[in-house]
Design a protein around this nucleic acid. Structure first.
Length: 786
DNA sequence: GAGCACTGC
C-alpha cells in the first residue's frame, strides 16, 4: 500500500531512475496504480520429442569380457568406433546414412540446423559422428587478454544440451555404452566392483546434483541451465569445440538465452577463443524452424569476422531434415464443434473400446486421452468406471489409469505398465505430461481435447494465470504422434478441421509467457549491458523487460544506472529466483541472522510441487490432519515448511513412514535436502555463514520472535507481494490493489490477519495468494527502506 | 475449498 510506504522510500522513488540503453524509466511510474488494459494472449504448452523412454535408464554393463583397453583398440581399427553389440541398432537408425553429410557440413560451416523426428537417433548419434573430426581436437593456443599473453586450451569437447536432467543422464548412459566406455553406476552396483575403469571414458554428463565427467570425456551431456552457469565462468566456452542444442523446439527460457549467447560467440569476435570457431548444431523435432534458421543466419557481426588464420568464412546456416520412424496415424476431426468436450471424450473412448480390436500383430491397442487437468481426469475416471461396470461379458473390460504430475511416483508408474488382467483394455487419462515428459507404451488410439492448461505471467498485474487454452498445431501433431509409436494408430481430435487450421503453428515460447526477471539478471551477470539489444529468437515486450529491470532495482540487484550491483552478482550464484536469492542475502545480514532457517524454507519451496500432498479420501483426512497438526504454525505456510523440514531432519528412525503418516511428498523432501545442502555449501563459500553443524539435530520449535525475523527477511524479497485486510474481510494487495483470496492449500485459508505476505499469486478460478504468511503492516514499509 | 509441465556450478 502506497500510503503505508515510508516517506523516505517515496522520496527515493520519485528521484530514482533506471537507465536501459538510451531509455530512462522512473520508479514512480512503476509504483503507480494507474489501471492498464490487459492484452489477452492465447498460449499453449510447448512441444515434442524424446528419443528415449524412461525405461531406457536400465544400466547395463555391456561389452562382456572386454576392458577399456580393448574398447580403445577397437576404436582405433574399427569404423565406426564404439561397442560392437550396438552397431546393428545404430546402423538401422534413419540418421546413420546422413553421417558423412553431417560431417561434411560441419567441416565447412559453423552452424547446422538439424530436424529429426522422434526416433531418428539424432541425440545419440550426432555427437558420436563428430568427436573425432579434426576441428574437434583440443588445441593449446596463446590468447591476449588485458595486455598480457596467456596460454590456454581451446576445444576438444562436444556439449549436448537437454532441457531435463533425466534426458541428459539417460542419454549419456546410452551413448557411453554405445561408445564402449559405459558409465557404470557405482551406487547401483552395490558391493560389486565395476567392470570398467570408470575414471576414464569418452562420454560424461553434468546436471545439478550429479556430475560424471570421466577423464578424457569428449562428449558431455548437460542441462541447458548447467551450460548457462558455465557461461558465467567461461564466456567463450573455451572447453568446447561444438555445442549441440537438442530439443530447441521446446523453447525453454534457458535455451533461448543460450541461443543468444551462442549466436554472439559464433558471429562475434573470436579473440577469446584465439580465432578457433565454435560449431553449433541446433536440433529440433519439429520442422518449424524457419525463425531459428533466420536467427542464426542473419548477423551484422558476420561482416566483421576476424581473419586471424581462419580459412573459411561462414556460409549461411546449413539445414538438414531427417525423417523419423513413426507409424502412420489416421487423424479424424469432428464434423462440427462439440458442445461438451468432457462428454465427447467419454463417448469417443466408448466408441473406440467397443468398435476397435483389443490387440493386433503390433501388440496391445490401448487408449490415451488428453485432458486439461486433474479435476476433469478424476471426473471422467468415475464416469468411465461406472460405464465399464455395465459392459456385457463379450466386451473387453476397461482399466482406467489417471496420469498427472501430482500423482505419486507409484501411481504414475502404473500407467506405464501393461495390463496384467486378461481381456482388458488400458485407458490412460493424462494431462500434458504425456505429450513431452513421459511415453506411455501400448498406445494406439489418442483422443485430443484440443486444450491444455497454460501458465502465463501478466506483467501488468504482477501475477500469473493458469487457464485452459487451445493448443498449437505442433502440439496437436505431437499428441497424435503418440498413437504411432508401436504400430499404425488413430487419433481422434475433438475439434473441427477448421479449428485446427486456425490454431497457432507453434506454442508461445516460455520467454513470452513468464516473468523475465530471471532472464534479465542472467544476461546482466554475463556482461550484457543493453539487455534490449541482446539477440533473442523472440523478444518479450519492452514493457515486460522494463518491469523486470525495475523489480531488479528494487531488489538491489541493479544500480540506478542499470548496471549489476555486487548484490546482484551474489544473487546469480544461487540456484533460486532473484527474490529468493535476495531473501538469502537478507537472512545472512546480522540484523536478521536466520540464514539456516531461511535455507530450510526455500529448499522446501523450490523442491518442486508442494511437499504437502493433497488428502483425497475422507477417512484418511482426519488422521493425516491430526498428524500434520504438529507441523502447522499460526504464522503461516513458511513457518510450517520450516517446522516440517526440522522435524524431518530430526526424524532418525523411519523418514518414509514419517512422510507417509503426514502425506508429505518424500521425493520432494529428499530433493529439498539436496537443495539445502547445495545452498548451504554456496553460503559457506560466500562467507555468509560458518559450516553448520551436521544432521540430525534435535527439534526445537522456532520462537515467535525468531519467526517474525524470518518473515521480515522474506519481505526483503517479497515486499510487493503483500495484502491488507479490508473492512469487508477481503484482502487487497498493496501493489496493484487487487482482491486476493488465500488459497485453500494454505494453512491460513479462511483466516483473517491484519496483513499477509504471499510468495505466489495465481489466477485460476479466482485471484489466489499462495505460500501465505501473517505479517504486520508496519513490516512492509520497513522492508522497503533499505 | 483447489493443484498444466519442466528446470538451475
Amino acid at each position: 500500500m502506497e500510503n503505508r510506504m515510508s516517506k523516505k522510500r517515496k522520496a527515493e522513488a520519485s528521484a530514482n531512475v533506471v537507465k536501459i540503453g538510451n531509455k530512462t524509466i522512473s520508479l514512480e511510474g512503476y509504483l503507480s496504480k494507474k489501471p492498464r488494459k490487459e492484452t489477452p494472449a492465447p498460449a499453449v504448452k510447448e512441444n515434442p520429442d524424446a528419443d528415449l523412454t524412461p525405461d531406457d535408464t536400465a544400466p547395463t554393463l555391456g561389452l562382456d569380457g572386454k576392458n577399456l583397453e580393448d574398447a580403445a583398440a577397437d576404436l582405433a581399427v574399427r569404423k565406426p568406433p564404439g561397442a560392437p553389440e550396438f552397431f546393428q541398432t545404430r546402423q538401422g537408425l534413419p540418421l546413420w546414412s546422413y553421417q558423412d553429410e553431417i560431417r561434411r557440413i560441419l567441416r565447412q560451416n559453423d552452424v547446422l540446423v538439424l530436424v529429426g523426428e522422434t526416433g531418428s537417433g539424432k541425440s545419440t548419434q550426432v555427437p558420436q559422428f563428430l568427436y573425432q573430426e579434426g576441428w574437434c581436437q583440443r588445441r593449446r593456443v596463446k590468447i591476449e587478454e588485458g595486455g598480457r599473453t596467456e596460454e590456454v586450451s581451446v576445444g576438444g569437447v562436444i556439449a549436448i544440451t537437454q532441457p531435463r536432467r533425466v534426458a541428459a543422464t539417460t542419454l549419456a548412459h546410452r551413448v557411453a555404452r554405445e561408445a564402449g566406455t559405459p558409465l557404470v553406476s557405482v551406487e547401483k552396483g552395490g558391493g560389486d566392483k565395476p567392470k570398467y575403469d570408470t575414471s576414464k571414458g569418452l562420454v560424461g554428463y553434468s546436471v545439478r546434483f550429479d556430475h560424471r565427467v570421466p577423464r578424457g570425456t569428449r562428449i558431455k551431456f548437460v542441462t541447458e541451465g548447467m551450460l548457462l552457469q558455465e557461461l558465467l565462468r567461461d564466456p567463450h566456452l573455451r572447453q568446447y569445440s561444438a555445442i549441440v542444442v537438442d530439443e530447441i523446439h521446446e523453447r525453454s527460457v534457458d535455451v533461448d538465452l543460450l541461443s543468444g549467447f551462442l549466436k554472439q560467440i559464433v558471429t562475434g569476435d573470436k579473440a577469446g577463443r584465439a580465432g578457433i570457431p565454435l560449431k553449433v548444431v541446433i536440433m529440433s523435432a519439429t520442422a518449424n524452424v524457419e525463425s531459428i534458421k533466420t536467427f542464426f543466419s542473419d548477423s551484422e557481426a558476420q561482416k566483421t569476422r576476424p581473419v586471424s588464420g581462419q580459412q573459411t568464412s561462414p556460409s549461411p546456416v546449413q539445414f538438414l531434415q531427417i525423417e523419423g520412424r513413426q507409424f502412420p496415424v489416421e487423424i479424424t476431426h469432428t464434423p462440427k464443434p462439440v458442445p461438451d468436450i468432457q462428454e465427447a471424450l467419454l463417448k469417443t473412448i466408448f466408441k473406440i473400446h467397443t468398435g476397435e480390436p483389443l490387440q493386433d500383430k503390433y501388440g496391445r491397442n490401448d487408449i490415451l486421452a488428453f485432458f486439461t487437468g486433474q479435476e476433469d481426469i478424476e471426473a471422467a475416471q468415475r464416469l468411465i468406471e461406472e460405464y465399464a461396470a455395465t459392459l456385457g461379458p463379450k466386451v473387453p473390460k476397461i482399466k482406467v489409469l489417471p496420469l498427472f504430475g501430482q500423482l505419486s511416483m507409484e501411481a504414475q508408474h502404473e500407467a506405464f505398465q501393461p495390463i496384467k488382467a486378461s481381456f482388458t483394455r488400458k485407458v490412460v487419462l493424462a494431462t500434458n505430461i504425456a505429450e513431452t515428459s513421459v511415453t506411455v507404451p501400448g498406445v494406439r488410439y489418442v483422443i485430443d481435447c484440443g486444450k491444455a492448461k497454460v501458465k502465463k505471467y501478466r506483467p501488468r498485474l504482477g501475477m500469473e494465470s493458469l487457464l485452459a487454452k487451445p493448443i498449437s498445431q505442433s502440439s496437436a501433431i505431437q499428441r497424435a504422434g503418440r498413437a504411432g509409436r508401436e504400430g499404425p494408430g488413430k487419433c481422434f481430435r475433438l475439434y473441427t478441421e477448421e479449428t485446427y487450421d486456425e490454431l497457432p503453428k507453434t506454442d508461445l515460447p516460455e520467454i513470452l509467457r513468464t516473468d523475465v526477471l530471471g532472464a534479465i539478471l542472467t544476461m546482466k551477470a554475463r556482461g550484457i549491458e543493453d539487455v534490449l539489444s541482446f539477440p533473442l529468437m523472440d523478444r518479450p515486450e519492452v514493457e515486460s523487460v522494463e518491469k523486470a529491470l525495475l523489480h531488479l532495482h528494487i531488489l538491489g540487484a541493479l544500480a540506478d544506472d542499470g548496471s549489476i550491483t555486487d548484490m546482484g552478482r551474489k544473487m546469480v550464484l544461487f540456484p533460486v529466483t532473484a527474490p529468493y536469492a535476495r531473501v538469502l542475502l537478507a537472512a545472512a545480514d546480522p540484523k536478521y541472522d536466520c540464514l539456516l532457517e531461511v535455507i530450510d524454507i526455500i529448499s522446501c519451496i523450490t523442491a518442486g510441487d508442494d511437499i504437502f500432498l493433497q488428502i483425497k479420501s475422507e477417512e484418511l483426512k482426519e488422521e493425516v490432519e491430526a498428524n500434520r497438526k504438529e507441523l502447522s504454525r499460526r504464522e503461516g505456510d513458511l513457518l510450517t515448511y520450516l517446522t516440517a523440514m526440522q522435524l524431518y531432519v530430526a526424524e532418525t528412525s523411519d523418514r518414509a513412514q514419517w512422510c507417509k503418516a503426514r502425506k508429505i511428498n518424500i521425493r520432494n523432501m529428499k530433493q529439498a535436502l539436496n537443495i539445502r545442502k547445495q545452498i548451504r555449501g554456496l553460503c559457506v563459500k560466500q562467507k555468509m555463514m560458518e559450516q553448520p553443524a551436521p544432521d540430525p539435530r534435535p527439534f526445537a520449535p522456532t520462537s515467535p520472535d525468531k519467526a517474525a525475523t524470518i518473515l521480515k527477511s522474506f519481505l526483503k524479497g517479497f515486499a510487493l507481494k503483500t495484502a491488507m485486510l479490508a473492512p469487508d474481510s477481503s484482502y487487497v494487495t498493496s501493489h496493484g490493489k487487487h482482491v486476493v483470496a488465500i488459497h485453500p492449500s494454505s494453512v491460513l485459508h479462511g483466516q483473517k490477519k491484519e496483513a499477509i505476505m504471499f510468495l505466489e499469486h495465481v489466477y485460476t478460478q479466482k485471484n489466489y495468494a499462495k505460500k501465505v504468511s501473517a505479517i504486520q503492516a508496519a513490516w512492509i514499509a520497513e522492508a522497503l527502506e533499505g
